[in-house]
């Protein structure tokens, strides 16, 4: 009993529980003190976990690190950041995330940042390039759909899902280089975000799904059955953008133009320089760019053109993406 009390004191007095649950996401085994219902549970020994997610009191660390009043600050081995009314988070050495919840911090909102920003930082610390978008598998290769918010990434991925092509990610696409320098996508976790309009168009019933925290009309749809779980080579990247006019248009991006495109669509790209990872990002981009096809897919801002876009992408992948 004395031992237990000692352990509890060590992690902080506000801690509701120190039990951990094991999960898998992005090919990593995660031992977490926070329950993460979004992730797949795995039954392994804690000792084999790649990363750990723990509660901890970061108030003092934050006060010491936050000298420049930035929302993100460097600490030894990582980054610390604060989301008002939610929590303080630290992400260290590509293997440890500490969460310091604020009073009344909503747990689903905490998980949104944990599985989003924290995971994005952690992947970069591990040398994995996180792209922001959705990815599906066509003929054994992953194709990533990137673009600004509302460009139609999730919707396009859903259209492929509807045709029987498995999903590998719907928010953060984890790209790493294998020993032969081939870019590989490691599946994230089975969850898909979809806008109301897309749900209606695709004939899904919105009231069956759980709205994502703080995102009115955006729903989380569990897609475990159609979710691919093994790493696959990255075949290509398609940048979606809305344009005036009525035609959808697909054009290849030349080599040097691919660099800024990957910067634009790297998840939490504003943190690359804070993490001092510019050279890594550039070299990784160069390696990825030379092995895949990179295209821009322009679509009219009005109208629902997702099936036409899917057909164009399928035609291109059949011809062989260069």
């Amino acid at each position: 009993m004395a031992y237990l009390l000692h352990v509890r004191k060590g992690v902080g007095t506000m801690i509701p529980s120190i039990e951990t649950t094991n999960y898998e996401a992005f090919g990593m085994r995660i031992a977490s003190q926070l329950a993460l219902p979004e992730l797949q549970r795995v039954y392994i020994d804690d000792a084999y976990a790649d990363i750990e997610i723990q509660y901890g009191d970061l108030t003092r660390v934050w006060a010491e690190a936050a000298i420049a009043r930035n929302s993100y600050n460097l600490i030894d081995g990582g980054i610390i950041f604060t989301i008002p009314d939610t929590a303080i988070f630290s992400v260290e050495e590509g293997k440890r995330i500490t969460v310091s919840p604020m009073e009344n911090g909503d747990s689903s909102r905490i998980r949104l940042f944990l599985l989003g920003t924290c995971m994005g930082i952690l992947l970069m610390q591990r040398g994995v390039l996180p792209l922001h978008g959705s990815a599906v598998i066509i003929e054994g290769k992953a194709y990533a759909f990137v673009g600004d918010s509302g460009a139609g990434k999730s919707t396009l991925a859903s259209a492929f899902l509807g045709k029987g092509y498995p999903l590998v990610s719907d928010d953060v696409i984890a790209v790493s280089l294998d020993p032969d320098g081939i870019p590989i996508v490691t599946p994230s976790y089975p969850q898909q975000k979809l806008w109301q309009e897309s749900i209606d168009q695709l004939g899904l019933a919105a009231n069956q799904y759980q709205p994502l925290y703080g995102r009115v009309n955006k729903y989380a749809i569990p897609v475990a059955s159609a979710f691919h779980t093994q790493p696959v080579p990255l075949g290509g990247v398609f940048e979606l953008c809305k344009v005036e006019g009525e035609e959808t248009k697909l054009c290849e991006i030349e080599r040097l133009g691919r660099f800024p495109l990957l910067v634009r669509h790297t998840y939490r790209n504003a943190l690359i320089s804070l993490l001092q990872l510019e050279q890594w990002h550039f070299a990784t981009s160069a390696a990825v760019i030379s092995k895949i096809g990179v295209y821009q897919l322009q679509r009219p801002s009005a109208g629902f053109t997702v099936q036409r876009m899917a057909a164009q992408i399928l035609e291109l992948t059949r011809k062989g993406v260069s």
């Binding site: 510019e278 050279q279 550039f282 070299a283 981009s285 160069a286 390696a287 760019i289 030379s290």
Partner: peptide, 9 residues
């Protein structure tokens, strides 16, 4: 100073 450099093919 201040250039990022990499090999591509």
């Amino acid at each position: 100073k201040g250039n990022l450099v990499s090999n591509m093919d």
